[in-house]
Amino acid sequence: MKRVPTSVAIAGTVAVALIATALLAPWVAPADPTDIASYNLIDSELPPSFVVGGEARYFLGTDNQGRDLLSAILYGARVSILIGGGAVALAALLGVTLGLVAGYFGGWLDAAIMRVGDVILSLPTILLALLVSGLARALIPDAASASWAPFILIGAIAIHEWVQYARTVRAATMVEVQREYVRAAKVIGLPPLRILGRHILPNVMSSVLVIATINLAGAILTEATLSFLGVGMPPTYPSLGTLIRIGNEFVFSGIWWIAFFPALTLVIGVLAVNIVGDWLRDRFNPKLRSLA
């Protein structure tokens, strides 16, 4: 085992700490920003406690509705991570399945899957996500739209991201299929699904895990962007992006903290995950090359 560089160790610690606190938000946050009864408009737009005029109750101040900003950020990060993680999981599931099938069977099935992927990659992520969420909103009644929002976002992001997984897994599968242990499995007479699941999948997973880590940061950013543009999470269940959008309206009136702290959290989190992801990719890269 090689030594982990200091920067990666720090980034890893930060990422784990951030994700853990965010996921445990209901238990560690001072207040529940989704509970309307718990906050009061009188407390709105209070600066952080360490700034003149701040109150000790609100460490990072309050937003325009009087919600504790620290709690809102923790809950918001939780929403962002769950949506980002969900999108990555869905994209990986879809991409790995299609990649395995395309790489193993080849022929017209492979051609069809990969050409659909090419078309999807020719559209920018945000544009496609806007299109999907717009369509979904038109189809789902307004009353239900708030509860559907996270799932729409997950779908809108995953529809673009699966192609990366499919391409990587397809290439790795095509290499593995030629290897002798797969040919031995064929000679034993195992059906294709079993060969794919038990023999090939475990051998292509390492590359999938690397892409997933790097993609997690991207998916969180995409979600934040969509929420910032107003097609993401509603203000009642704010994600980091929603908080930044709300804060953005107040920046020029001197109320900088509503946008600043969620944005800082987002930057630190994405940076940390990216550093870990890049390190993972470099570590696994020689292995990927030796497969090719």
């Binding site: 290897r179 242990y181 040919r183």
Partner: peptide
């Protein structure tokens, strides 16, 4: 199926012919 089991193969490259993610007993039990 019966015919497939009756004919088996041993390959050239000993490093590629066993699935590196499968324990030996699982590979033989399959």
């Amino acid at each position: 199926r019966a015919l497939r089991g009756a004919m088996q193969m041993v390959f050239q490259d000993p490093y590629a012919s066993l699935n590196s993610r499968m324990r030996i007993d699982n590979a033989l039990a399959e």
